[in-house]
Nucleic acid binder design. Structure first.
Length: 300
DNA sequence: CCTGGTGCCTGGGTGC
DNA sequence: TGCACCCAGGCACCAG
């Protein structure tokens, strides 16, 4: 057993998990889950639960814990796995566990004897006597087992997910060209996951503020697009560095909070002073999302 | 294809 | 103290 981690909330997020929060959860889970065998799986029978294929996880070994955008990706190895070279000589198409925390999802490692939590939607009993519990009050999260890399039809967003913002795949010129091609508000483009993966409401507002771009802008020229590209990278990198944003009781394994909250410049600061120009930050609704920006230094 | 609008879901907050 | 709203928002889905 691992008493230092048992019973600890790995991610009781009040903040909606975006890339930095999911990456922080991934880093906590990876050493705990890698090499563990899933003994048994239980899941929520609710008709609207976004769950598929989980019966296939039983007996599988978790090979690693990865991430793409806001998705956690765990490649699985079957009981007889011996290197992945099948009779045909081609690499076997193994299975993959895909988790998305949605708005309120949280993952915990608990003792397997602990009763199912009130909002527990999925439980993976592991071969070390613990259970990976997926707690998700609003059922906006997702849990699926698919053939590795085959994300259609179950997970269409993952199938068309844009580049990882903190990798070289996120190319500034390509980003600028794609942004120039359509006329939706720039914030909507940041949120839709195809231009760049992992940006949600908080870090969209933060990035736009940093790049001095009005969230409702429908035309973003090359130089501003390049500034936005850099801002997205800088904001996400800084938030990962601080293990995400905690509003309430999101806790790390050691009990610490995500420390990006004090770094937020606009999100949650409507009516307060802009830290750059002292104008009053304004809160509007854009793309059906609460949006905060500085009317003085973010111009259309 | 592109875009905007609606529904899903429920804990927590507000106003009466 | 109780009750009826109403909001938060990632994503699926649909209509124009």
């Amino acid at each position: 057993m691992r008493p230092a981690v048992d019973q600890v909330a790995l991610a009781t997020l009040r903040t909606v998990p975006e890339l930095p929060e999911v990456e922080s959860v991934r880093r906590q889970l990876a050493p705990e889950l890698t090499g563990r065998r899933v003994v048994e799986v239980w899941w929520d029978p609710h008709p609207h639960a976004r769950i598929s294929g989980l019966e296939q996880a039983a007996g599988q070994v978790i090979r690693s814990v990865g991430r793409r955008g806001k998705f956690l990706l765990c490649p699985l190895d079957g009981p007889g796995f011996a290197g992945g070279i099948g009779a045909s000589g081609a690499r076997d198409a193994g299975l993959e566990l895909v988790l998305h925390l949605g708005m309120t999802g949280a993952l915990r490692l608990v003792d397997a004897t602990e009763p199912t939590g009130a909002h527990e939607r999925v439980g993976f009993d592991l071969d070390d006597g613990r259970r990976l519990a997926f707690n998700d009050p609003r059922r906006f999260g997702r849990a699926s087992v698919v053939v590795a890399g085959r994300y259609l039809p179950d997970i269409p967003t993952l199938a068309v997910l844009g580049p990882e913002p903190l990798s070289p795949d996120f190319d500034p010129e390509r980003f600028a060209a794609q942004l120039a091609r359509t006329r939706a508000p720039v914030k909507a483009r940041l949120l839709d996951q195809r231009l760049v993966a992992g940006v949600g409401n908080i870090y969209a507002d933060e990035s736009l503020w940093r790049a001095r771009i009005h969230p409702a802008s429908r035309r973003v020229g090359r130089s501003r697009a390049l500034a936005l590209h850099a801002a997205v990278r800088d904001v996400l990198a800084a938030a990962v560095e601080r293990e995400g944003t905690t509003f309430r009781d999101y806790q790390l394994v050691n009990g610490a909070s995500g420390r990006y909250l004090s770094e937020l410049d606009v999100y949650g600061r409507g009516g307060l002073e802009c830290r750059r120009c002292t104008a009053t930050l304004r809160r509007i609704v854009l793309a059906q999302r609460g949006t905060t920006y500085c009317p003085s230094c973010q111009r259309i």
